[in-house]
Amino acid sequence: MTATVGTTTGSPTGALGVRDWELWSTTARLVVTDPARLAAAADLVDDLLDAVDRAASRFRPDSELLGLARSGDGDVVLSPLLAALLAEALAAARATGGAVDPTLGGALAALGYDRDFSLLDRPRTVPGVATGGRRAGTPLVVRSLPGWRSLALAGHRLSMPAGVQLDLGATAKAGAADRAATLVSERLGTGVLVSLGGDVATAGAPPAGGWQVTVQDLPVDVPQQVTLAAGAALATSSTVRRTWRTGDRDVHHLLDPRTGQPTRGPWRTASVVATSCTRANAASTAALVKGGDAVAWLRGTGLPARLVSEDGDVVVLGGWPAPAAPEGRAS
């Protein structure tokens, strides 16, 4: 899952159609360059997002993800949509060396994230204060995890070990943003931006000057505006947005697949621009999981990226515009 990005979208020469709403315990925004198409675009997006939720939600009892029925040989036949979403999750796992892993559902549930985020206990620590994902003195428990390589997807048929709990939160929301933007552009012939929390996808012709997107994780952070060209996407992952109290510690939702525990820094926020939101999200999530290796790994991808440390320092690389001094440094 990703942090909410405050998005400011506008054109100096014309009006845009804008709709904001709450979705999946985060904020969503739909923007079209043709305001007359907003209502039709909203209907298309709502239907698509409902289909994604019915396919991949970990929390609604009627979702396909929670109701996977195995045949006698241990295989599961998936719907075309869930198969596509899982294929994207496995591609993200391969591209990130396993830093993004769709088999962490059981580990998240063990940490208490077994219901909608709005129902979890609030954390006691202040967002933005480094906690390392656990209270000092609490021993780190390394769990035996199935790992993404335990899954075999061939077309719509999935083979996986018994007891595996899938979680597609790291990629399905980004994939939904990509699909929604493409659908609106192709069906209605308008430029469109779809933002689902920190996952921003665009399609079609942008407004004059491009899509203006303000990147800001916490209210105390200095906002930075970036311009997205036609078809560009942006994703932000954060360890300070989805936090909750479990037992005697505060935890967050971004887990290290090697331990099944929340990542422990040094970065708390990662933003990445790519040609698809799915790819951007995989990179931003992987950066936080990779921790001290994030800068070198991101530089290898060539993607524009912005990292914020637990102390609030900013590092930009890959062509991401440098923030005004003394906020950060280009790398």
Rank of each mutant, 00 (worst) to 15 (best):
G197R: 00
G191V: 05
D75F: 06
V18T: 03
V295G: 05
H156N: 09
T243K: 10
A89M: 04
H156W: 11
P266T: 08
A3M: 04
D250W: 05
R60F: 12
S238R: 01
L90Y: 02
R124F: 12
S159R: 12
D199Q: 05
R124L: 15
A36F: 07
L158C: 07
P127Q: 04
A235I: 02
M160D: 07
P139V: 06
V126S: 14
L168W: 01
H253S: 06
V213Q: 01
F117P: 02
R37T: 10
Q225L: 03
L168P: 00
G292D: 14
A91N: 06
W244M: 13
V45H: 06
V226W: 00
A28V: 13
L86P: 01
F59R: 09
D34P: 10
A83E: 02
L68Q: 11
A3V: 02
R115P: 06
A39P: 03
A296D: 15
A93I: 07
W24Q: 11
A92Y: 01
T239W: 11
T202N: 02
D178C: 02
G74K: 15
L48N: 08
T202S: 07
G155H: 03
S276A: 09
A39E: 13
R115A: 11
R264F: 05
R70F: 07
D221I: 06
A84T: 05
A170P: 02
A109Y: 12
G6Q: 02
R60D: 08
P304Q: 09
T269H: 05
L90P: 01
T263W: 07
T103V: 13
S159W: 09
W211E: 02
V314R: 00
A233R: 00
H156G: 12
D116M: 09
A56Y: 00
D47P: 09
V76M: 04
H253Q: 09
V100I: 08
T182H: 01
L38C: 05
L168R: 03
E22H: 15
E22L: 15
R157H: 12
P12Y: 12
R134E: 09
W267Q: 10
T8F: 11
Q212L: 10
A87H: 07
A89G: 14
V31T: 10
D20E: 15
L85F: 11
D313I: 12
A283P: 08
R179V: 02
L30V: 05
V5W: 00
G132W: 02
D248K: 15
L168E: 03
D53E: 15
K290F: 10
G328N: 01
A305L: 04
L168S: 06
L317M: 08
G147S: 10
A83H: 07
G291S: 06
R279C: 01
L90N: 03
A40L: 08
V315N: 00
A205V: 13
L23F: 14
R187Y: 10
A203C: 01
